[in-house]
Nucleic acid binder design. Sequence first.
DNA 1: CTGTTAGCGCTTTCAT
DNA 2: ATGAAAGCGCTAACAG
Lengths: 346, 346
Amino acid sequence: MARTPPRPPRDAAPAPRAGKAVTIRDVAKVAGVSPITVSRALNNPELVTPDTLERVRAVVARTGYVPNFLAGSLRSRRSRVIAAVFPQITNSMFADAIQAFTDRLRAEGYEVLLGLSSYEQREDELIAGILGRRPEGIYLTGINHSPQTRRRLIASHIPVVEAWDLTPTPIDMLVGFSHEKAGAAMARHLLAKGHRRIGLVWGKDPRAGVRRRGIEEALAEAGIDAVPASLEPPPGKFQFGREGFADLLRRGERVSAVACSSDPLAQGVVAEAQQRGLRIPEDLAVIGFGDFDFAAHTSPSLTTIAIEKARIGQLAAEALIARIEGREVAERVVDVGFRLVEREST
Amino acid sequence: MARTPPRPPRDAAPAPRAGKAVTIRDVAKVAGVSPITVSRALNNPELVTPDTLERVRAVVARTGYVPNFLAGSLRSRRSRVIAAVFPQITNSMFADAIQAFTDRLRAEGYEVLLGLSSYEQREDELIAGILGRRPEGIYLTGINHSPQTRRRLIASHIPVVEAWDLTPTPIDMLVGFSHEKAGAAMARHLLAKGHRRIGLVWGKDPRAGVRRRGIEEALAEAGIDAVPASLEPPPGKFQFGREGFADLLRRGERVSAVACSSDPLAQGVVAEAQQRGLRIPEDLAVIGFGDFDFAAHTSPSLTTIAIEKARIGQLAAEALIARIEGREVAERVVDVGFRLVEREST
DNA sequence: CTGTTAGCGCTTTCAT
DNA sequence: ATGAAAGCGCTAACAG
């Protein structure tokens, strides 16, 4: 606290900064060139003689000039910003995708505007605010958007990537996988292992709902119609897994297998089961969803439906970049699929 | 793919959008008012008669007008954007803070520009790019910034919050805790339990380094000078924990306790130890760092140094908002502390 | 290779 | 309560 550099006291009002920032004209004046030459030196150095280039750079360094991209973007209609909307970040599900997406875009010189929509809580407003910043592309999680949002997005004429889900009618482009099939794959696995009494500990988010339909329909085809479920609020986390399984038992459901809508939930189920003296998988089989790494780290490790999350982020970034640069993308819809990874023998 | 709405084919060049967007003047013309009245209807509705307000709103809705904040920000010098820089997002350490930070800011009408600096990989460049977008405030992870970055930040005259660490000389404001003390607390705990042969499985990130100094100095004071350590690359994760502990054993280090720089690492150590037939904590005590929730979910659950991560994000957001709105903040430096949480009896 | 002119879309300022 | 003029800082478009 002691030697904090004295900062200029602010005005009482929420007013603009006092200190006038260095502008391109200041730099131009000092360097003895025109503003546009400074602009070129910074953005298209190859259009400028090495001599002036160096002079301009020196002045920029000396004056601490920071180009105002707001102004540049306004004029050039290129903001070099790409927006990304996720339901939430604490959900381990999305972190890898965000990271990969952001890394890829920064490598191409884009900044990322992050929107967290907290599942449903007015994605509309969020996106309206985002579009006002004129991003050059936008990444959306999921395919369920209000008609209003769809209209705005289409009217904006910027490339859009929807991710984490599959539909034949994306707004524009899409990178994801079928949650219905993922659910069905869970069912098939459990059926193959001979399970008939299967319980669900399941999150309430929209895509989890689709997976649930997938698993229940596949079970119904095998003649299993009663599938007890304990529903938990997002984000699916360990504690809810424990509670969910306890809830199933409390309700007197006697199951030989539990399927979970996420790996943290599944870990919770495993913990609760072990605490009650059940052996995994002899007494209770548990299958999760999402992250093989995550599932592999439990003990005993879980069977899970694994998703290449980072790949989704990267492909989405690349699709946006391609379209911004005027290249048509070969595939508008990319199905990255999933794979079932069985637990180690442990 | 089938019914994808036909989008206007893009030009080959990375050119601006073709479709001219609706501007405030278009809206004004249709509503039969001046542009400034539209602006007021949107931003200061109380300055406009209910009648014109309604008319303007109707036209906005009908035309799909999306205000261009780039232009507005340029003129008003208020971008309503706040930037946040984190080393990485896959590190479970930061997710809660990002979420809390973003939630708080959106509630106040700010958008968040996310920067991921990937530990060291040119934070300078990242921040230069960010400042060009004229954020009204900036959140930084950590206190180690290049002189150049410090200069730029100070010259920008925007409020800055550094987080996750403590120093008497922040750039501006700070919300964090002492990593040195956190390390020392680990040492004290293990010493109190009677341990003398203590090993480290430790991440290589800068703040972890400070915690290491804290623990080693505290151990040295107790006469323990040899503290074998296995160093792992960030992000500290389960697998590295396993490998780290295996590494210690391979090197012939016989320890009764292992301290880890993060909870995922600690979980890995626990798993590896259990696999080798060691009982936790009877044969091996393990202490982690970071997230009580996380640590509580292991089995047996871990002792850990718990941090209120969401609180850091929230306090940081509030500090920035306060300063942007012209309020002086009472405390420039906030120490949120940490607490040692012992494992359940399990 | 460099400069001039104009204007991106909005909001500040000053009138009325 | 509304409007006219001006300009935020930059770059597109067109010279030269």
